[in-house]
Amino acid sequence: MAKADLFGEALWDQYSSVVADRMNNPRNQGEITEEEATARGGKLVVADFGAESCGDAVRLYWLVDTETDKIIEAKFKSFGCGTAIASSDMMVDLCIGKTVDEAVKITNIDVEMALRDDPETPAVPGQKMHCSVMAYDVIKEAAAIYKGVDADSFEKETIICECARVSLSTLKEVIRLNDLKTVEQITDYTKAGAFCKSCIQPGGHEEKDIYLVDVLKEVRAEMEQERLKEAADASATGDFSKMTMIQRLKAIDKVIDESVRQFLIADGGNMEVIDIKDTDQGFIDVYIRYLGACSTCSTSTTGTLYAIESTLKKELDENIRVLPI
């Protein structure tokens, strides 16, 4: 939480004046009939996206010149809030004059950017970003109708956050590269989850197949699996620095058993490993405790200690330091 989360700016006061103007006076509202299309010699495309039951529905009309694939005229109809109407209106502006292939590249971010008063200030508050997603999706539908293909064929990627258009593969990569551990970190790095927040976890405005929490959990589980595998490999190849704690303990005990412990026992003493810690300076500190006669032996902090440490350095890792407690 923070001040803005506790009591943010009034919702409508966060709309840009372009959004307000487009809601009040949409330029491109209307429809194109089959007769008009025939008269102007173009192909009429009428695409729907969304549903009134979800709170947003948009219908896009394109008149396409079939020789150049250029959108020569476009209109929209929309059931939705001010943001939905304004972004539909702006989306139509962006379509006109483009070829169908160019139009397909228009994203909801493009629509939102076009609605800004100045480049630095979002046109709508985060929770309204999802209203502009519709504008993006309906273009894909229209293009699919025009080309006679499935709309999904334009979407090569699985999009997790529709507001910021962040794909599953991007998320996975960013989590791995930056070793991200929380959803907040994901949002900081990618903007995914920053807007309507539906993609963060179940219970938001829209139901999703996969949420950020799932992606994070999955990638972290994969990373953990890989770490263990790496550790297992490290154990096999003797790379002490990459071993897990348990593997390290076993490795140390093995070396001690083979080359040190017998001498300690012969003198009526023994030792045990208490803890192993990686230091920031790159050392691996092994904390040990002497038992029996060793605990009072004067060489336990000098010669014996040196012998133990140099054996471990030689056998396991030269960064090992042995520290008696």
């Binding site: 009939t33 695409a47 969304g50 529905a57 219908r59 109809k77 997603v133 519709m134 109708i145 709309a151």
Partner: peptide, 19 residues
């Protein structure tokens, strides 16, 4: 209602999807 898709006369050529 003049802006609304539910009151427009030219209907869509696809099957409306929900989002």
């Amino acid at each position: 209602r003049a802006i609304s898709s539910s009151y427009s006369t030219v209907k869509a050529q696809n099957i409306a999807k929900t989002h």
